[in-house]
Amino acid sequence: MILTNIESVPGKKVVGHYGMVSGSTVRATHIGRDLLAGVKNFFGGEIEGYTELMDESRKEATQRMISSAAAMGANAVVNVRYATSAITTGAAEVYAYGTAVRVEDIQPKV
């Protein structure tokens, strides 16, 4: 599955559109991590526990989007966007959406 966040796939041409596909996740960390994050937040610096959480959520949301695109018979998702929102402290929603398309290689002109 090819993913891009521009309106096409460079070097390929779009031959079919399947409409919008999306995937979302709401994830939370366990309380131990939340406590550790609280300590980190007090002293400053990156909060690795939450970075990991956001990375995992984004991957999961992307995976869900890809599987719904694959179910439609698409081989690429173009114009992918991510939207993140905080639900409560320590939990966040990541939403990935894009347009499922079928792309083919551009045949060189003879």
Partner: peptide, 16 residues
């Protein structure tokens, strides 16, 4: 071509 993405969470300390 392919999608690349990353995120980072940074906290402000108590003094800030």
């Amino acid at each position: 071509s392919y999608l690349v993405s990353s995120s980072v969470v940074i906290g402000c300390d108590y003094f800030k």
